[in-house]
């Protein structure tokens, strides 16, 4: 399934990662982003520019390679990922996991890093009705608390760390 991105976040494809490697384009993209910040009252600041291909985001969102151990901490942290609220994961907190989303204990067998990246960064691109939030997006939200306004839930690096950790999950531990 390849749905067009939601209309409200057209800014994301404008600033795609295609520009990431080339300094001049990068500067141009930054200027464009600044101009957009100044002209629109509704700040749209994704955690990083990204390009969606089918059901994947191929390019890493951050420069530093993701680190699995850090990803596990993000997933457990109530102030950051808090993924156990909806998913079963191999974490001590996982004993009190929620079941709103699928069991992720072996998700690395099902999904590639590029597929995982899209699901964490912008899952609602695949399923607009999904209850799972878009962790890299921040635009077009209603009544966001002042302390979080204009910010995505996670940073690009945190998402890369999560992707590194999730892609290594390959074993299901049965509930005792």
């Amino acid at each position: 399934m390849d749905l067009p991105p939601p209309a409200a976040s057209v800014s994301a494809p404008l600033l795609t990662c295609a520009a990431a490697g080339r300094p001049s384009l990068r500067v141009a993209a930054t200027l464009l982003a600044l101009a957009m910040l100044l002209t629109s009252a509704a700040t749209i600041a994704d955690c990083a520019p990204f390009q969606i291909d089918g059901d994947r985001i191929e390019q890493p969102l951050a420069e530093k390679v993701g680190e699995a151990a850090a990803g596990a901490r993000v997933a457990a942290d109530r102030q950051r990922g808090d993924c156990v609220i909806c998913h079963r994961l191999p974490l001590p907190e996982g004993r009190f996991h929620g079941n709103l989303g699928p069991d992720l204990q072996a998700v690395g067998l099902r999904l590639s890093p590029a597929q995982l990246r899209l699901r964490v960064a912008a899952n609602r691109h695949l399923n607009p009705e999904s209850i799972m939030p878009d962790y890299c997006r921040s635009g077009d939200r209603h009544r966001v608390a002042e302390s979080h306004r204009g910010q995505p839930i996670l940073s690009a690096q945190e998402i890369e760390d999560l992707v590194a950790w999730l892609s290594g999950l390959e074993a299901v531990e049965k509930t005792p």
Partner: peptide
């Protein structure tokens, strides 16, 4: 609503009974 972009209905209508 909110940074997590969830409605009351998302939880109490569509997912009532889930954990």
């Amino acid at each position: 609503r909110g940074q997590l972009d969830l409605s009351c209905a998302d939880c109490h209508d569509r997912h009532a009974g889930a954990r």
